[in-house]
C-alpha cells in the first residue's frame, strides 16, 4: 500500500494532540471559576483522571505506530511517533500538576507522605521520572548524538507503559476493567515486538555464524560476505 503522506498530516496530528488538553483546560477552568459542571461536581478529581487517561492513550498511540506502519506500509507514520510520545509526556506532566497544585494544593507534607506511603504513587512517580530523559533526548540532535544508545534508552517506554498501567490499576477503588483493557493493549503491542525481534534474530543467525562477530542478538547490518 502506498498512500503518500498528506501535506497537512503533521499539523492535523499536532492539533489533535492538543484537543484533550484544551478540553480539560476549558472544562476544569470554567467549572472552578464559573461554577459550571462540565467535569461534574468534583472537577479537580475528574480533570486529574481525564489527563491520566490521555497519558495512557497517547502511550498506546506511540507504541502502536511501529506495528501500524509495518502492517499498512505507511512508513511515513514513523516521522510522527515523536509527537505522540511528547504528547504522552505533556499529559503526564499536566496530570501531575493537577494532582500537586489543585488536588493536594502544594501541601508538601502530604505530597511526601503520599510518595513514601502509597505504592501506587511511588509507581506513578517512577514512571514520570523515567519519562523525563526520554522527552529530553527526543530531538534529532540527541538521536544523532546517542546513536544506538538512543534506541536502548527509549526501550524504557515499555517499562513506563507497565508502570502507568500498574499505577492506574492500583488507584481504582474496585472495578479494574479499564486498567485491564490498557494492560491487554500494551501486552498485544509488546508481544508484537517480541515476535518481530525473534523473527529478525532467526533471520540474522546465519549472518552471525558467518562471522560478523559483533554479538548483537539481532542483525547488526554488517553482514560479512563468505
Amino acid at each position: 500500500m502506498s498512500i503518500r503522506e498528506p501535506r497537512w498530516f503533521g499539523w492535523a496530528l499536532l492539533a489533535l494532540c492538543c484537543v484533550p488538553g484544551l478540553v480539560a483546560a476549558y472544562g476544569v477552568g470554567s467549572d472552578l471559576l464559573l461554577g459550571t459542571r462540565h467535569f461534574g461536581s468534583n472537577p479537580i478529581k475528574a480533570g486529574e483522571h481525564f489527563l491520566g487517561d490521555w497519558t495512557l492513550r497517547f502511550l498506546v498511540a506511540t507504541l502502536a505506530v511501529t506495528p501500524l506502519r509495518q502492517l499498512t506500509g505507511l512508513h511515513w507514520l514513523a516521522r510522527h511517533r515523536r509527537k505522540l510520545g511528547l504528547a504522552a509526556f505533556a499529559y503526564l506532566m499536566l496530570h501531575w500538576l493537577v494532582y500537586a497544585l489543585l488536588d493536594v494544593q502544594l501541601d508538601w507534607g502530604e505530597l511526601l507522605r503520599d510518595l513514601a506511603k502509597r505504592p501506587y504513587i511511588m509507581i506513578g512517580m517512577t514512571g514520570l521520572v523515567l519519562m523525563i530523559p526520554l522527552a529530553v533526548t527526543s530531538t534529532q540532535n540527541m538521536m544523532r548524538k546517542l546513536g544506538r544508545r538512543w534506541t536502548t534508552l527509549h526501550r524504557l517506554v515499555y517499562v513506563i507503559a507497565f508502570l502507568g498501567t500498574m499505577h492506574f490499576w492500583m488507584s481504582v477503588k474496585k472495578d479494574v476493567t479499564e486498567p485491564a483493557i490498557y494492560a491487554a493493549i500494551f501486552a498485544v503491542l509488546g508481544l508484537y515486538r517480541l515476535v518481530q525481534w525473534r523473527r529478525r534474530w532467526l533471520r540474522a543467525r546465519p549472518a552471525m555464524a558467518a562471522g560478523c562477530g559483533c554479538g548483537a542478538p539481532q542483525a547488526c547490518g554488517r553482514v560479512v560476505e563468505p
Partner: peptide, 9 residues
Amino acid sequence: PRWSQHKER
C-alpha cells in the same frame, strides 16, 4: 491505605 483522610474537598 491509598490516601490520607486528613483533609477533604
